[in-house]
């Protein structure tokens, strides 16, 4: 295997990382909004949020990606495949992150919310200043896990025409007839990225330990 091939794999890995990070970030914002809808106690917000979560957790990511890829042009939205890929991954991880956060929000002691209420914080201020930071600390390990899952699932976005790490490895393997070293290298690159995410997660957990409940 030549240096050239390895460079191509690394370049594809950059796409994998980029698509995954952007999707995780967008998914996180959506997950927070879903949590707010759930905690609002109003059915007009919480019911759609629940349907959203059930749908995106219940349908395989591959099917979601194919649906989005075919659905968007059908309703007249001609988006580049990178957008379709990110939308698909974001919505999927949003559902999982919301589900993880739900447990965290449920574990925030009621007294801390009441303390916010008696000091005059509005429900919205309480949500962003008290509930989210506490729930986030409680669910950090699950969120790191989810980030790793998304990074690995991002190999599926090749179905909408994105050349990320897995797809690049497949293409190179068939053109060079060196499948074993190429797939080994690809696997190793995934392993390194995931390990780095896990390390960062563990560092953050340790840093935040004394500020958690």
């Amino acid at each position: 295997m030549t240096f050239k091939i390895f460079t191509l794999l690394l370049q594809a890995a950059v796409s994998t990382i980029g698509i995954s990070l952007v999707s995780i970030a967008i998914g996180f914002v959506i997950a927070i909004l879903l949590s707010a809808a759930n905690l609002s106690g109003k059915a007009i917000y919480s019911a759609p949020a629940r349907v959203f979560v059930s749908f995106f957790r219940g349908v395989p990511l591959l099917v979601q990606l194919l649906l989005i890829y075919t659905l968007l042009p059908a309703i007249g939205l001609n988006v580049p495949s990178i957008v379709a890929a990110i939308v698909g991954l974001s919505l999927c991880t949003a559902a999982y992150q919301a589900e993880n956060l739900r447990g965290g929000f449920a574990s925030v002691p009621k007294g801390l919310i009441e303390a916010a209420e008696v000091t005059g914080l509005s429900p919205r201020q309480t949500f962003f200043r008290i509930r989210v930071p506490i729930a986030l600390r409680l669910t950090l390990p699950a969120l790191v896990n989810e980030a790793i899952m998304i990074l690995k699932s991002s190999s599926l976005v090749s179905v909408v025409g994105i050349i990320e790490l897995t797809k690049m490895a497949q293409d190179l393997a068939s053109s060079t007839y060196l499948p074993i070293p190429i797939f080994l290298s690809a696997g190793l690159i995934y392993l390194v990225i995931c390990s780095v995410i896990a390390l960062i997660g563990r560092y953050a957990e340790r840093r935040l330990a004394r500020t958690s409940i």
Partner: peptide, 18 residues
């Protein structure tokens, strides 16, 4: 009217992240 009262709880209820 609520702003006229302050409350102290049995369990302190300090926010742990601050």
């Amino acid at each position: 009217v609520r702003a006229q009262t302050g409350m102290v709880f049995q369990q302190f209820n300090l926010w742990p992240h601050m």
